[in-house]
Amino acid sequence: MKIKQLLSVFSFILAVSVNAQVTLPHYEPFNYTVGDTLPWNSFNSGDSIVIMSGNLSYSGLQSSTGNMIVMGEYGKDYQKQFTEQGTGTTTYYSFLLKVTDLGALDATGGYFAAFTESQATTYYGASLWLRLSGSAYNVGINARTTAAYTSWASGTYNVNDVLLIVVSYQLNSGSTNDVVKLWINPTNLGGTAPTENVTITNGGTDLIKIANVLLRQDSHTETPEFMNIDELRIGNSYADVTPAGTVGLSSLQNTEQFKVYPSCVRDWLSAESVKPIQSYKIISGIGIVCMEGKHSSNRLTLNLNSLTPGIYFAQFTVEDGTTVTRKIVKK
């Protein structure tokens, strides 16, 4: 009985520490147990956001740590609370995004990230949107959440592209005048903000405050089937959420420098790299490591015959520490 009571107390303390309000700037490396659900405050029903082994990287951004998450359509929504930000402040969030399967995303799309006033409200702002564009997708921003007021950045992005997303919300005095900005793949990191891709001045009801960041899993037409998010940051300046570091995304991300084939595999999967492969992992679509091992040459062949058909991620690490991930389909 005493052991059970101690375990219950420990579990409560752990839950409180994970979900407690954080101060800014805040860095979320998703350094939790692989396969567990994201330990933020959650609401609604459906699939959970799950911790997945590995990381995303972006050239010039501080090296990634911890793990990443996998999320998608028809699922629970998650919020992380931080110190309340009021009138006169500008709050930023950033993360690395990799859409791995568009699923049934349509040309209207929907939003999957935003700021919120509190955990007990649906007053969202600085919502980040995706929509289908041919076989690719667009990224857009909205001061609130009405689809008609979404402003879309020029250009399209492909499945498996890694994007650095930066969003800001400026809480101005007065009404209907808050300003929201979006940067996609900025090259100036850790300093003064470069020119944004999109700017919106809110024409509706402004937020009163900002106190949470939201990750949202909506319907199959509004949210891609699978996407990864890594290196989430919240801060009061552009520099807070874009810390510069050593180059993280090497030329190995180029398919000519690192080849994985076939993308649809029944038995044997092959990998070829210009640099020696040191280790590998085969990870399921919900973040479970199904196979892993060490290696020491430029070529690798794996027998995936024992795996259940479905979507997997083949992750390889080469001698300089660079991690390369490819989506595969097991027949």
Results as ranks from 00 to 15, higher is better:
Leu6Met: 09
Ser8Arg: 07
Val18Gly: 01
Gln21Ala: 05
Thr23Trp: 01
Leu24Gln: 12
Pro25Ala: 11
Asn31Glu: 13
Leu38Tyr: 01
Pro39Asn: 08
Ser42Asp: 15
Gly46Asp: 09
Met52Tyr: 06
Gly54Leu: 07
Asn55Val: 11
Ser59Thr: 15
Gly66Ser: 02
Ile69Lys: 02
Ile69Asp: 02
Gly72Ser: 09
Tyr74Asn: 15
Phe82Leu: 05
Glu84Tyr: 03
Gln85Met: 07
Gly86Asn: 11
Leu96Trp: 02
Leu97Phe: 13
Lys98Ala: 09
Thr100Trp: 05
Leu102Asp: 04
Gly103Pro: 07
Ala104Phe: 08
Ala114Asn: 10
Ala114Ser: 14
Trp129Ser: 02
Arg131Pro: 01
Ser133Glu: 12
Ile141Arg: 02
Ile141Glu: 05
Ile141Gln: 04
Ala148Met: 03
Ser151Leu: 13
Trp152Gln: 06
Ser154Thr: 12
Val162Asn: 01
Leu163Gln: 09
Val166Asp: 01
Ser175Asn: 10
Ile184Leu: 12
Gly191Ser: 15
Val198Glu: 06
Gly203Thr: 15
Lys209Cys: 00
Asn212Pro: 01
Leu215Ala: 10
His220Met: 04
His220Pro: 01
Thr221Lys: 01
Glu225Ile: 00
Asn228Thr: 13
Asn236Glu: 14
Thr242Gln: 02
Leu249Ala: 06
Glu256Phe: 12
Val260Asp: 08
Arg266Trp: 00
Pro276Gly: 03
Gln278His: 11
Ile282Glu: 03
Ser284Arg: 03
Ile288Lys: 09
Ile288Val: 14
Ile288Met: 04
Lys294Tyr: 06
Thr301Val: 12
Thr301Lys: 09
Leu302Met: 12
Ser306Asn: 11
Ser306Asp: 13
Leu307Thr: 09
Leu307Val: 04
Gly310Lys: 08
Gly310Met: 04
Val318Ile: 12
Arg326Ala: 06
Lys330Asp: 11
